[in-house]
Design a protein around this nucleic acid. Structure first.
Lengths: 272, 272
DNA sequence: CTAATAGTGTCTATTAGACAGTATGTT
DNA sequence: AACATACTGTCTAATAGACACTATTAG
């Protein structure tokens, strides 16, 4: 059938001309939390953590998964992610970026569902008992080698473990895709989403200022360094770290004391 | 209704419980092409280019757009992109990466369509008249300043122009989103897709080896440098460039001569 | 010889890594 | 005093920027 104008074409358009599917969005909420120390003098150790919720319904009933949900026809993916994040944490104005769109044909047992994941970074301390009751923070422990990620998530009561392989798709450049090879405890393809997010964050912390979204307004350089260390998974040398960070922060006249050692100056993020 | 097992739940699952939409994939095919010089001695100038196709049907009939199409229910987004790329160029085994998923509610006048874009990099010289007839390469000329991208695409016969603003969403870090503010000639939100791709490529060329997907097997360092320059939009100093690239290439015993000047050694990509 | 690109040497400035030292609070 | 972290000085190694120079071809 021929049309002579766009208006005419649209008037006769059959929206069911192409097959349709449902879309969801999953949100990877990362934060850094303190773990109290036995020794009053020692700094509280930092942990990199992710927020999971326990599924109340089928499929994957009673398994842990990332907060997520179906998108509505009158909202963008980003709006859906923001809505779900607010539902789950009661937080607004949170840093969030699109991570990846996962479209494996059988990633959901119910039907064809494509899911776009978002990564959000928050300062967990801003959050005061506003979590929905089926949600819980899990510490992330990452062991990475040439070929695999071995990732353990623990929340004090439960310990979840999965393994993701780096499947090389380009022999010459060494570029790889991720493939879940072991996963007992997480729903859907969420081990993939989490691993993708960890890699992204690890990369971006090096060339952007996103860490500061996980920090309170005032922080010591020691705390900031701990956050870098826990995300990068390695120790950093003090002088090098301070040089690197110098242009991004500014000293305030506040200090933090009471730790059985020299008090530390409090800094804040400095925009350039 | 209560179920006592996942199987039972799935058996009774109504796939229309949630609203559905169609998904498409758009492919941003980048390459670098030679532009012949008047003077036989001068090197042929390189141009950064993108492949566009002219729409044959409504909507946006007769406008240029990125190659793309609807995804089928039995293929992933990546498979759809690969299929469409092969259709359009007859090329296989091409480097491709997911770029971004665009989900504006009204991005398509027909109905709600979410589109995931992919970026492919090819060596245009491998391509010999295998383009589909409504496709054409356009040179990309980018003028970027603090607040805008002014982008011109030209294929010898036509010149398309659009402008994209950097809309700052986070005052402190300077993070911005892209917003099309002028576009007469491209269909859909494709100015956004193209700009997103240009930014991504510009970033990734600095810390990955993806350029080599746009290079022939053997190339001179001068040619390689031109490609970097044309993508980064700035001149590079020879010694610095050669040092930077040194570990990524290896010299072959071939040379390229005939240009009225000292012949150049041919190099190839060296995997690490 | 000349125009044009190919390719190198080297000086300097900046940045990154490493280590050792000093400073200052609490108990 | 002892411990623990805060913070700095400095030496060295590696990297990046800049410029000037030499090399080699076709015509």
């Amino acid at each position: 059938m021929e049309y002579c104008s766009e208006e005419e074409f649209l008037k006769h358009y059959n929206p069911d001309a192409f097959e349709k599917l449902s879309m969801t969005t999953d949100i990877l909420i990362f934060s850094v939390s303190d773990k109290a120390q036995e020794n009053y003098r020692k700094l509280s150790e930092k942990h990199f953590s992710v927020l999971l919720v326990k599924r109340k319904d089928y499929p994957f009933k009673d398994k842990w998964c990332l907060p997520g949900g179906f998108i509505k026809m009158d909202e963008t993916l980003e709006e859906a992610a923001t809505r779900i994040l607010a539902n789950e944490t009661n937080l607004h104005d949170i840093y969030m970026e699109q991570l990846y769109t996962f479209s494996d044909v059988n990633r959901d047992p119910r039907m064809r569902i494509v899911s776009t994941s978002y990564m959000a970074l928050i300062d967990k301390n801003q959050l005061q008992d506003t979590l929905s009751e089926n949600a819980s923070w899990f510490h992330i422990i990452v062991l990475e080698d040439k070929k695999f990620f071995h990732i353990t998530l623990e929340n004090g009561a439960e310990e979840l473990h999965f393994e993701v392989a780096k499947k090389v798709v380009d022999e010459t450049t060494g570029r790889y895709e991720l493939e879940v090879i072991k996963n007992d405890s997480l729903a859907f393809d969420h081990p993939l989403v989490i691993t993708t997010g960890i890699e992204r964050l690890k990369n971006k912390i090096e060339y952007t200022d996103i860490v500061f979204h996980m920090m309170p307004k005032y922080f010591t350089l020691g705390e900031l360094q701990q956050v870098y260390e826990v995300i990068l998974g390695k120790k950093l040398l003090d002088p090098a770290f301070r040089r690197m960070i110098a242009s991004k922060v500014e000293k305030t006249n506040k200090t933090k004391s009471g730790g059985g050692h020299r008090p530390s100056a409090l800094f804040q993020y400095k925009k350039r």
